[in-house]
C-alpha cells in the first residue's frame, strides 16, 4: 500500500498543486503592478464555484463539444503518469514514452480545437485556426528538444532520460542542454497561452487564442477545461524543471522538495516575463516559435556531433 502510494506521488502532487501555480503567477504579476492581488488559492475557489453550477449548451453543438473537456482532462492526467519528478521515476515508463507524451497532449489540443469548431461560432473558429498554426510550429521544437535529450543520455523514456542525467552531463553537453532548456521554455509559454504568445487575461475575441476556444463552456465543463489547462501548465513546467534540476542527483523526499521549489520558481519567472513583456503581434509569434525550433535543432546537432 505504502509503495503504491509512493509510486503515484508524482501524479498526486500534480493533481493537488497545479492550480497553485496559477495563484503564484497572479501574485507575482500583482506585486509587479503594485496591487495586493487575489489570494494564492483563488484558482481552487474558482473551480469549486464552477463545479456547483449548471451547464448551458448551445443547440448547434453535438456530442463532440460535451466530450472534449473530459477527453482533455483524461489525456493530460494520463500524460502525468509518464512524467518523473526529480530523482523519483514515473509510475509508468516504457521505451519511446516521450513520443506518447507529446502526442497524447496533441490529442487534447485536437479535441479542444474540434469542440471550438463544433460551436459554429466564427470567433472560436478563428481561435482554433491560430491554435493549430502556432502549435504546428511549437511541436517540432519540443520533439527535437526531447530527441536531443534522448541522444545525450542514451535513453528513450522520460524516466530513463532524467535518471541518467548527472553533473557530468552538464559538463559534457552544457551549452546544448541550456539551448534545450530555452527552447522548452518558449514552447511552455506558447502551449499554455501565456504572454508573449497569448494573453490569458484578455477577453477581447480578436486577440486571444485559448480563451476564445472555450467561450461556450460553462459550469462543470468550464471547470474541467480550466483544471486541464492548469495540469498542462504543470506537466510542461515539470519537463523544464526536470531538465534543470535532475543533474543534481537528489532523490526521495529531498528530490520532491527540490522539484516543488523549482516549480514555484518557474511560476515566479513566468510572472516576471508576463509583467515585463508585451504580447507580441500575431505576425511575430511564428518568429519566436521558429527561434525555439532553431535552438533545439542546434542543440541536437551539437549533441549528435560531439557526444554520440
Amino acid at each position: 500500500m505504502n509503495t503504491f502510494f509512493v509510486s503515484l506521488l508524482p501524479v498526486l502532487l500534480g493533481l493537488v498543486l497545479a492550480p497553485l501555480l496559477l495563484g503564484v503567477i497572479h501574485r507575482t504579476k500583482a506585486v509587479f503592478a503594485g496591487r495586493h492581488g487575489s489570494p494564492l488559492l483563488q484558482a481552487y475557489s474558482d473551480l469549486a464555484k464552477l463545479l456547483r453550477k449548471g451547464a448551458v449548451y448551445s443547440r448547434t453543438t453535438t456530442w463532440v463539444f460535451r466530450a472534449a473537456p473530459v477527453i482533455g482532462l483524461a489525456s493530460v492526467v494520463s500524460v502525468m503518469v509518464l512524467l518523473p519528478i526529480t530523482g523519483n521515476s514515473a509510475p509508468l515508463s516504457f521505451v519511446g514514452d516521450l513520443i506518447v507524451f507529446i502526442y497524447v497532449l496533441g490529442l487534447m489540443r485536437f479535441f479542444t480545437v474540434v469542440a471550438a469548431l463544433d460551436t459554429g461560432s466564427s470567433f472560436e473558429g478563428m481561435g482554433a485556426s491560430r491554435e493549430v498554426h502556432f502549435s504546428a510550429l511549437a511541436e517540432p521544437a519540443i520533439v527535437v528538444g526531447l530527441v536531443a535529450l534522448a541522444s545525450a543520455t542514451g535513453f528513450l523514456s522520460l524516466s530513463g532520460i532524467f535518471s541518467a542525467m548527472s553533473p557530468t552531463t552538464w559538463v559534457v553537453a552544457g551549452p546544448a542542454l541550456a539551448l534545450v532548456l530555452a527552447a522548452l521554455f518558449i514552447v511552455f509559454l506558447a502551449e499554455n497561452s501565456r504572454i508573449p504568445i497569448d494573453d490569458p487575461n484578455t477577453h477581447l475575441e480578436l486577440t486571444m487564442i485559448h480563451e476564445v476556444m472555450i467561450l461556450d463552456y460553462s459550469g462543470p465543463d468550464l471547470a474541467l477545461v480550466l483544471y486541464a489547462a492548469a495540469l498542462k501548465l504543470w506537466v510542461l513546467g515539470a519537463l523544464i524543471v526536470n531538465v534543470a534540476l535532475s543533474p543534481l542527483g537528489l532523490n526521495g523526499i529531498r528530490g520532491v522538495g527540490l522539484f516543488v521549489a523549482g516549480m514555484l520558481v518557474l511560476a515566479v519567472i513566468v510572472g516576471c516575463v508576463e509583467s515585463m513583456m508585451a504580447r507580441s503581434s500575431f505576425l511575430k509569434v511564428p518568429r519566436l516559435l521558429v527561434t525555439a525550433i532553431a535552438l533545439s535543432g542546434i542543440a541536437f546537432m551539437l549533441i549528435v556531433r560531439f557526444t554520440a
Binding site: 559538463v171 551549452p175 546544448a176 518568429r287 521558429v290 527561434t291 532553431a294 542546434i298 551539437l302
Partner: peptide, 21 residues
C-alpha cells in the same frame, strides 16, 4: 573546452539573432 563550446554556441546564436530580428 566547456568555456570554448559556450562561446562558440553563443556565436552561432548571435548569427541566428540577426536572421530572426
Amino acid at each position: 573546452t566547456l568555456l570554448q563550446d559556450t562561446l562558440l554556441v553563443a556565436l552561432i546564436l548571435t548569427s541566428f539573432g540577426m536572421l530572426v530580428s
